[in-house]
Design a protein around this nucleic acid. Structure first.
Lengths: 193, 193
DNA sequence: CGAATGACCGTTTTAGTAAACTGGTCATTA
DNA sequence: TAATGACCAGTTTACTAAAACGGTCATTCG
């Protein structure tokens, strides 16, 4: 119990620090202090700073996968699943905050670990999306296309609608994000006869 | 003649340097040397380095506008115009090279002038796109939507297909870019009955 | 005479270094 | 014997001198 508790304390403190200060600006002394633990204790559970960070990230990814798997029903339509997963993901405030902090750090300071972390997360999401898109193509739910390209575009669209747009436009509500997702990915802009 | 020629020499040399080395790594001595001109001469025509850079950028923007205006026919359909403009823009190698260099510089070193230059270009393109989208909505060619959002998404889609995709996929040909543009912006992915 | 020039100026950037800090270890402690 | 923090080696930061830069202007050249 004491062991698990300490490990958990470190994980929580680290998650807090990484989300608050980013990778580089988070020091192991700080994590130890916040976790109420001697610095050496951290190294009982985690090999080094990078592995600790990886563990946090892995947790986020696992959490996201859980959300996705909980919402996806194989008997439902692709777009139906897509919207439910999107909806559930948009609720994850803490995950988004870490994500945003790492984006800032990667952009403003070019910290390699921040960039690599984002890349890792992106590649997991893309792999996942890719599989779903392949499914949908095979089931004839969406038109034949390259899943790699489609999943990348979908991911980028998500970023644009949830983050980038906020610089030139007031933030979109969940319903609006859903609506524009359907417009671009599903139905297209063209007014049909 | 001599005056115009010197000014032109400076502009050409500067365009070359900015494309090759980016904003910061381009020195006025270098521009003068390549232009076969004394450094002081540059300041006869341009107030300072930043204004010289602006002039180059303004030229690129004017060139792009010309291309767009040459291709747009008010009597043709929105998507028809879109594809012709896209096609024409994809031919502009030199313009693209400057953008790519500035993107790198902004990302890798955070040079403010590089970022501001890109922002300026982006806002011009977005304004232009926005007007065209508004037209198309009024003419009932595309569904009702927020032109600001749609134009931003279109712009980002262009970046993804022409640049970002190349990191994980072999570069797309012009026809493929057109095809995916039509798929996402025009028709949508959904397989209709 | 006036447009072109490059040596020159003040400022900024870079290179080099000493001091401070950080990630990681391990002898000591509780 | 698990937890700890003083300690170590390596890195980052803060500081300074030297180099390089953008920009000027007295001089030169056509």
């Amino acid at each position: 119990m004491a062991v698990v508790d300490r490990r958990q304390q470190v994980l929580q403190a680290a998650a807090k620090c990484f989300t608050l200060f980013g990778y580089k600006a988070t020091t192991m002394d700080q994590v130890a202090r916040i976790a109420n633990v001697g610095k050496g204790t951290i190294y009982t559970f985690f090999m080094n700073k990078e592995q600790l960070f990886d563990e946090i990230l892995r947790g986020v990814i696992v959490e996201m996968k859980k959300v996705a798997e909980r919402e996806i029903r194989r008997d439902k339509a692709f777009f139906d699943n897509l919207h439910r997963v999107l909806d559930a993901l948009l609720e994850f405030r803490s995950e988004h905050e870490l994500f945003i902090k790492l984006s800032q750090e990667s952009r403003d300071f070019g910290t390699p670990q921040a960039g690599e972390g984002l890349d890792k997360l992106e590649s997991v999401v893309l792999e996942y999306l890719e599989r779903e898109v392949e499914h949908a193509i095979q089931d004839g739910e969406i038109k034949p296309c390259d899943p790699k390209i489609v999943s990348l575009v979908m991911f980028r669209l998500y970023i644009v609608l949830t983050a980038e747009l906020n610089k030139v436009h007031e933030p979109l509500g969940k319903e609006q994000i859903q609506q524009y997702f359907q417009l671009f990915i599903g139905d297209g802009l063209a007014q049909r006869a």
